[in-house]
Amino acid sequence: MSKLDFETAVRQEEEHLRRLYPTADDIPGCISLFDTYLSCNVIRNQIKSIYRYGQRPVCGPKMEDFKFCLSLKSLHPEERRDAWIARRAEWWARRRLAKSSEDIWDIREVPLQNFPKPISDDHVDAGPIE
């Protein structure tokens, strides 16, 4: 069972998203989000979702992302970036804390010591494993 709480997950996701999208120009624009919504409704994606999951894809959240983007148009670019990152961080945190096949994994806070083991000259001189 994960010891992760929602606030910690949101903070971790915000840190990750701030590195992933360092400037306001890096976040997706409203047109891009609308294109994502439209592509969700394309027949090919509908059929693929029915085949894979037995149901049509859920496109509503993609439309909500587009509408959220439109609501940010009057903000300064950095404020828009912060609002977008906060929203996405909460979405990812909810997704991480929900039941999934990845329940057994937690984000490692501290890297493993001495991993991977450095290759020594003995390993190089030994040649290929037979």
Rank of each mutant, 00 (worst) to 15 (best):
I85W: 02
Y53A: 06
S32E: 15
T23G: 00
S32T: 10
I107K: 14
L112Q: 09
L38E: 12
A83C: 06
E109S: 13
K117E: 15
E78G: 00
V10M: 01
G60P: 02
A9L: 09
W84Y: 14
A98D: 11
P116I: 07
W105C: 10
D121H: 06
D121P: 00
T8V: 06
A98E: 09
S100H: 07
F68P: 07
K73L: 12
F68H: 06
L75W: 09
E7H: 07
R18W: 05
N114K: 01
S2Y: 01
K67S: 09
L72P: 03
W91T: 12
V58L: 15
A83Y: 06
G127F: 14
V42Q: 10
W84N: 02
S120M: 13
R56M: 15
G60R: 14
L17F: 07
L70Q: 15
D65R: 07
R19T: 04
S120I: 13
N41S: 10
T36M: 10
A9M: 05
E7I: 04
W84I: 01
F68C: 01
L72T: 08
K3A: 15
A83P: 05
L4P: 00
R96N: 11
E130G: 12
L33P: 00
S101N: 13
L17R: 00
R96K: 11
V10R: 02
L72C: 10
S74I: 09
D125Y: 14
K117A: 14
E64F: 03
R96W: 04
C40I: 05
L17T: 02
A89H: 08
S39R: 12
P128S: 03
T23A: 02
S49C: 08
A9E: 09
G127L: 04
Y53N: 11
R52P: 00
Q55E: 14
R87T: 04
Q113D: 11
P128Q: 07
E130K: 12
I119D: 07
D26C: 08
S49Y: 05
S32A: 12
V42F: 12
G60C: 11
Y51G: 13
Y37E: 05
L112T: 12
S101E: 13
E14L: 04
R88W: 03
R18T: 03
E15H: 00
P118N: 04
F34L: 14
R80S: 09
S74Q: 10
E7D: 15
D65G: 00
D26E: 07
H16G: 10
Q113N: 07
L38P: 00
I43H: 13
Q55V: 00
D35G: 02
G29T: 08
H123F: 13
P28Y: 04
F66L: 01
